[in-house]
Structures are given as structure tokens and as C-alpha cells.
Nucleic acid binder design. Sequence first.
DNA 1: CAACCTGTTCGCCA
DNA 2: ATGGCGAACAGGTT
Length: 264
Amino acid sequence: MPELAEVEFYRRKWDAAIGQRIRAVELHARKRIFRETNTRELVSRLVGARLISSHTRGKQMLFHFSGDATLGIHLGMSGALRVEPANFEPDKHDHLVLRQRQRALVFRDPRQFGRVRFHHGDVAADWMRRETPEISDRRFDQQFFDSFLQRHRRAPIKAVLLLQSGFSGIGNWMADEILWRAKIRPNRKAGALNAARRSALLRETRFVARESLRVIGREDRQMPKSWLIHERWSASGKCPRDKTKLRRATIGGRTTAWCVRCQR
DNA sequence: CAACCTGTTCGCCA
DNA sequence: ATGGCGAACAGGTT
């Protein structure tokens, strides 16, 4: 499931563990999820360390532990974080288990498009750093937005919205939602949007990011009925505005749903 | 049984 | 050198 707001939702699941010591770490170093990660160091540094804090940068989660240790988790397409009782027994897709006295912190990812990283030291590793401003950041302004679209002017706007180097945390359903709200056809070239439409697109990008973060924090997380997300999966999906049957096609390498009537 | 999937990275090409 | 695009990664679900 994981895009911006869901990543935030999963990150918070491990908040229950803050301040507590890790007593044991269980993983299988050969799994793809640990590609290019020093798992021996991960285990040796995390055992005995306390979880101090965590945050997200786009879809990347960062968990900070005592002793300058940072665990990075990316959920990929099918990843999830859970908190389980102390006697939890992992199955084959539970790739990482951090055991505390009262609970087990679990990372599960059947498809293993996600990734577990580890870094020790007070100087940040490349994967922890990020030049890209978050959508909510003041630096994500019209100037940044316009120059990013200009740089990718030959690509369809849908594909541009999926580039994490500009739209931190935006994924497939959010991109469709943003374009639908801004009434822009997903296959329109990014460089073909005039100033008024770029302004609308920035506004709707901020709106969708802010609203999904606000709503998805709750356990019964459902976006409002009026949102495109409820219609975009079924073949019979209709535009929430004018009830036109949605069109579906692959744009920017992903399945895209849009309304041919109100998106131009 | 086949098609499909809320993500990223790589190699090829323009 | 930079950007666009299709393929590959893998297993569960429809």
C-alpha cells in the first residue's frame, strides 16, 4: 500500500517501542530485502541499543537508535510494519524482527521490492540524505515545481508526478488523484502546461498530500467518498464529479485512471 | 490460469 | 551529459 501517508502510518506503529532496548534481532542475511546491507553490523549494533526516534523522507523511513545507529526501511510495493506480542513467531515473509522485552517489531514484505538499510556513524549516509524537499516543506514552492516540470518537459505529467526527485512520497494513486483534482489529462506533456495550470497542479499536490496525511493517521482510514481513489480500481469506475466512466491506460509505466470529460 | 499490482533501478537509446 | 522508457525484480490476489 505504501505512499506518503501510509508510510507515515506504518512508521508510527513502532512508536510504542521508543525508549526501550532491543534485546535480539532476527533476520536472514541472504534475502533480497537486505541487498547491499551489512547485516552483521546491523545485528551487532542494534542488539542492546534503544530506539530513540523515527521520521520519514518521502517513502523512506529512518529509525534512530542509541550509539549512532540508523535503520532505514523502504516498504516497496507490499511492505508493512507491525507490532506483535513478545512471543511472536515470524513466517517466511517476516524478514526482520526486533525483539524487546514486551513486544516484537516486525517488518514484512512478501514481494521484497522494499529494502532494509543500516548505517552507523554521525555522518549521514547517501541514502539517508535527501535534497528533495517534502511536499509540506516551504521549499516545495512554485519555482521549484516549475523548474522540475521544465526539466522533464517532454515526459507525460503523470510520469513526472511519480519521480521521487521532485515529488517526494507521491505514488500511483496520489498522482491520479492530483491530476483529477487539477483537471489535467495524465498524458499531457509536462512542458505544455501554462502558468495557471501549473499553479493549480501545485495547489492540488499540496492538498492531496496534506489531506491524506491527516486522514490516514486514524485506524479506520478512508479518504472522503468524493475522492477518485474509490473508483479507480474497478473497470466500471466512474468520475466522482460527472459520473463519466473512467478511462484506464498505462502512462508513465503505471496503470492510470482518469476522466476524459473533465481532465483536459 | 492469466492478468494485475499504492515502487525502484538498470540498461539502452535519443 | 541528460532525460525518457521498457524490462526486471517476486509473490499474492482477482
